[in-house]
């Protein structure tokens, strides 16, 4: 399966297992989603469980919170993460706080799916990575898969979770992994180990990172598309790096990160999102606090620049192989 099919399969499995799971969003019903993630679901489960919505993100999330309060388990889709902002109030002030403010009487067991990230010539409003806005909010979990296998297992776990989960899907790798060589041929998931996705139910627990490459010289923390770009750079440079796919940003798998950095003595953080106050800053602070005496070099952050996501200048903006390679050289020299 590619990542789209894996995500579709996760919803299919959960809708069949739990009559309270409903899927909603712009174009998700009859049409099956602009990325085909919900294809076939309405036909199989009916219009009251998979339905198109008006174009109002604040309404989509607000309605989902109300459905959650009733006892359903809604899986709303925000068509692009760039368009999640109208729903910010419902996510930050409502979904995230409902359990806390009602001392557990009302909850928001919703899973908000949203394609995110760049590398597709999406320009300013089809490329953003807003995860840092949400990792700052107490009460929300943030999950970002990097492979089809993980996408399905994590999405099932997110839907089953009784807390609100933001599930950001890196659209650059919906159809195949991406090594950062933007002018090279597009790859598909076919033949990739993580494209072998079981048809049925399985789950990957939230809050657990995955070590995708073991190594002893430097720890690279990444998620989403950047896992694949970083891996390719490491292989090409012949550096014995340990590459960790965080998979869940909140709650974070601090144990895996800490053990790895204490082993390697070096830490590099890679994300597409803009740099200042991005999630990399939190990762850097945590590593510094917990691994200070093990660090042999300053922590490196390789990120998008602090600008809106550009269109024609995309590959100068994107934290690709050159930027990662330079940072890798620097951190290994220290």
């Amino acid at each position: 399966m590619n990542m789209i099919q894996a995500i579709n399969s996760a919803m299919d499995v959960m809708m069949a297992r739990d009559a309270d799971v409903v899927v909603m969003g712009e174009d998700v019903g009859y049409f099956g989603g602009v990325f085909r993630a919900t294809a076939g679901l309405q036909k199989k489960f009916g219009k009251t469980r998979v339905f198109d919505t008006p174009i109002t993100e604040c309404g989509i999330i607000g309605v989902a919170v109300g459905m959650g309060a009733y006892g359903l388990r809604p899986v709303p889709e925000i068509q692009f993460a760039d368009y999640i902002y109208p729903a910010l109030d419902q996510l930050v002030s409502e979904a995230a706080r409902l359990r806390y403010r009602s001392a557990g009487e009302f909850t928001a067991p919703i899973t908000v799916r949203s394609p995110f990230g760049g590398g597709i010539f999406g320009g300013q409003t089809h490329s953003q990575s807003p995860e840092g806005i949400f990792t700052h909010v107490s009460g929300i979990k943030t999950v970002i898969p990097a492979t089809p296998y993980d996408a399905k297992g994590l999405l099932i776990a997110a839907i089953e979770d009784n807390d609100p989960v933001l599930f950001f899907e890196p659209k650059r790798i919906y159809n195949g992994p991406f090594d950062g060589q933007w002018d090279g041929p597009a790859k598909s998931w076919a033949g990739h180990k993580a494209a072998q996705v079981p048809e049925g139910y399985y789950r990957i627990p939230l809050g657990k990172a995955s070590i995708v490459r073991e190594g002893g010289d430097v720890t690279i923390l990444a998620y989403g598309t950047m896992v694949h770009v970083a891996l390719a750079v490491v292989e090409a440079a012949g550096v014995d790096a340990e590459v960790i796919d965080l998979r869940t940003l909140v709650p974070l798998d601090i144990e895996t990160i800490e053990a790895s950095v204490k082993k390697t003595g070096r830490c590099m953080i890679v994300h597409e999102a803009t740099r200042t106050a991005g999630f990399g800053a939190e990762l850097s602070a945590l590593v510094q606090e917990r691994c200070f005496h093990h660090l042999e070099a300053p922590i490196e952050r390789v990120t998008g620049f602090d600008t809106p996501y550009p269109h024609s200048l995309e590959w100068a903006y994107f934290p690709g192989p050159v930027r990662i390679g330079m940072a890798l050289k620097k951190i290994m020299k220290d």
Binding site: C58, G62, V65, G66, A69, E105
Partner: peptide, 30 residues
């Protein structure tokens, strides 16, 4: 806030309860 009293948790953020009520009603209908 009281679930037993069928009285939804009040939020300080104005009007957020409006789409939530509609969602609750939609769920009841569905």
């Amino acid at each position: 806030s009281t679930k037993e009293g069928a009285f939804f948790s009040i939020s300080g953020n104005l009007a957020t309860q409006y789409p939530q009520a509609v969602g609750w009603a939609m769920a009841s209908a569905a």
